[in-house]
Amino acid sequence: MEWNWEFTWEIMPRMLVATGNTLIAAGLGYSIAIVLGLFLALAQRTPISLLTLIVREFVEFIRSTPLVLQIFFVYYVGPQYGIDLSPWVAGMIAIGLHYSAYLSEVYRGGIESVPVGQWEACRSLSLSTSDTYFRIIIPQALPPSVAGMGNYLVGIFKDTPMLSVIGVAELMHAANAIGGQHYRYLEPYTIVGVIFLLISLPSAGVIRVFETWVRRKLGMI
């Protein structure tokens, strides 16, 4: 089969709109994950050991089951109990929850990397718990977490094609639709692959630069 440039240009506008949707989906999902992940990480540091245990197992469960199955679960289980979720809402909940489990591990690693002396210093200055976390611990936990957080930003972007299974109109969904309409799969799927490479490879580089910037900003280099 020959590559058809005319067809390529014809479908390009649709593919670019879908690329926008992919980026929006990744951004929204990541925003949810970044906030929820912090809660999951902090919940594992409370003195209530039962809560720690439950959150720990929950995180393990999310991390060891397939995202695509979680997307189906969120999308189809709601209506069974009378809650109708649109594909976008269900998709964002599923992907946000999935990555929040990963990000909570990143935060946990970052918080644990803060030296014990910092905690002791906070206690001896009798800082409140929130001051201890927000003014002393989290700023220091951030730089070691940036690399992991960046990797998961690229990761969430690469996982957005799974949202096509419930009909979120992102890149993969557009490629499937175009392929089905024109009986040509070569161009749409190749374009999807190229767009993913064009976005994810440079962003990995940008994240490295950002990581160095954060470290310098906080006076760690």
Partner: peptide
Amino acid sequence: IEFFRGSSLLVQLFLLFYVLPLF
């Protein structure tokens, strides 16, 4: 390494499944 890490597994699966038969 860059190609396979740079794009999605799902995209690669569909490329293998739908595009290779064309060749």
